[in-house]
Amino acid sequence: MKGRLIYSEELSRYDFGTDHAMAPGRVANTISLARQLGVLDRLDVVPPPAVDLELIRRVHDDDYIAAVQRGEPNAEFGLGTTDNPVFPQMHDISALVAMATVEAARAVWTGEALRASNISGGLHHAMPRSTSGFCIYNDLAIAIRWLLDAGCERVAYVDVDVHHGDGVQAIFYDDPRVMTVSLHETPACLFPGTGFPEETGGPGAEGTAVNVALPPGTDDAGWLRAFDAVVPDVLRAFAPTILITQHGCDSHEHDPLADLDLSLDGQRASYLALADLADEICGGRWISTGGGGYALLHVVPRAWTHLLAIVSGEPVDPETPTPDAWRAEIGTWAPLLMGDGSDVSFARFADGISPESRVDQAILATRRAVYPELGLDPGF
């Protein structure tokens, strides 16, 4: 069964202008690279369905949606700020992004595909009645709500963006059917200022919010150590029916908006690990999206092409040269290889703790906060 990509050129029009971090080209450059490497040939590529406003209303308030439809600055709803300027057809394009993620969820839930992706999605900061962090409609939350309405018993959401997945966590904080897991740079240093380990879920849903807040400068070895020390345990304990993941690649060392130091190779390793966990725990049912990422030419297209290749079942070797024609499109910034040549080995937390390590302190804080709620031994 082929993996599925939900894509049309309209989805690449979600942008806030050339002088904004969420500039044009992130999705289009990815699609071009994936096409030239033959990745798209190994996927079923289908367009998003027509917008169903009732699905948007399952997460977002009517007056907020009406404000987005008007496309005018509105301080009450966070529209028209420096971070979140209005742009032409903002509602139509944002709603279509949400529909693309819902379509990925529908394809997996109905068994049409085991794996489905919307790299245009991953807008995890949007709240029910406000835009935030370049995110207008929370496509992830809308897709999760669709899955729950369709009868899915438990949904696990894992967010590897450098910023905390605050919108998805907030929307499902009191819902025991949804586990949100976020690995991010510590909110003591970075927007949105949430995602501390002590945020573990609301009344009746204790243990279903899991936050790993990593120190600035965390590299591949530290990040993968933290992932391995927490994510498999909590997912196995929760036993989700479906896994949905957000793959913001702004954790890369070259990203201008944050201070983690991952390589393309480290990010690719996390995608492979999540695919394996979906296979192990969810019978292979895996929905993935894009997210943040502001090294627009050097990082984003390669990262999401790796994601799509994994969705297709045929990962791309990091030593693969980038195509000549694609480099000509991108210009002098275009990287020569699909990887950064980094070693992604790491020492497992289970094999020994270093109390002086800030990464291990972050791991310990998360395990102390949430493991008892899940009936797990924190292991120290």
Results as ranks from 00 to 15, higher is better:
R225P: 06
S251E: 10
R225E: 11
R285K: 07
L277K: 00
L296Y: 07
R236E: 05
A278C: 06
P240Q: 02
R302T: 00
I287G: 04
V231H: 10
A221M: 13
G248F: 10
D233H: 14
L297I: 10
S251R: 14
W223C: 11
Y294I: 01
H247I: 02
F238K: 06
L264A: 11
C249I: 08
F227K: 00
A237D: 09
T289L: 02
T241N: 05
A226S: 05
W304Y: 06
D265T: 14
T245K: 09
L297G: 07
L264W: 11
R268C: 12
G293E: 07
A226F: 01
L272R: 13
W286H: 14
A258I: 00
G266V: 03
G293S: 11
R268K: 15
Y294H: 09
T305N: 06
H298D: 11
D276C: 03
G293A: 14
G284C: 03
S288G: 03
S251V: 15
G222I: 13
C282I: 00
L264M: 14
E253T: 08
A303K: 05
W286K: 04
T305D: 08
A295D: 15
A237T: 01
A226M: 01
R268M: 11
I242C: 08
I244R: 04
D255C: 10
P240I: 00
A226H: 01
S270Q: 15
L297T: 12
W286E: 08
D265G: 15
G291H: 04
S270L: 15
D233E: 14
D261E: 13
L260D: 02
L257C: 01
G283P: 13
P232I: 08
A269F: 04
C249Q: 12
W223P: 03
G248P: 03
A273L: 13
D276T: 07
A237F: 04
V231K: 11
S270T: 15
S288A: 15
Q246H: 05
A258W: 05
I281Y: 04
V231Y: 11
I281H: 03
L260W: 06
F227D: 02
L272V: 13
A221V: 07
G283D: 11
W223K: 06
P232V: 07
G222D: 12
V234K: 09
A275D: 14
D259E: 14
H254V: 03
R302Q: 09
G222N: 11
E280T: 11
G293R: 12
A221Q: 14
D233N: 07
A273D: 12
Y271F: 15
H298N: 09
A275H: 10
S288T: 15
G290C: 08
A226K: 01
Y271K: 07
D250F: 13
C282Y: 01
D220H: 10
R285W: 05
A229Q: 05
T245I: 03
L297H: 12
R285E: 08
G290N: 08
R285M: 02
I242M: 10
W286Y: 10
D261T: 04
L262C: 05
G292Y: 11
L274D: 07
S288Q: 05
D220Y: 13
E280W: 08
Y294A: 01
L243I: 05
A269V: 01
Q267T: 04
H298A: 14
E280I: 05
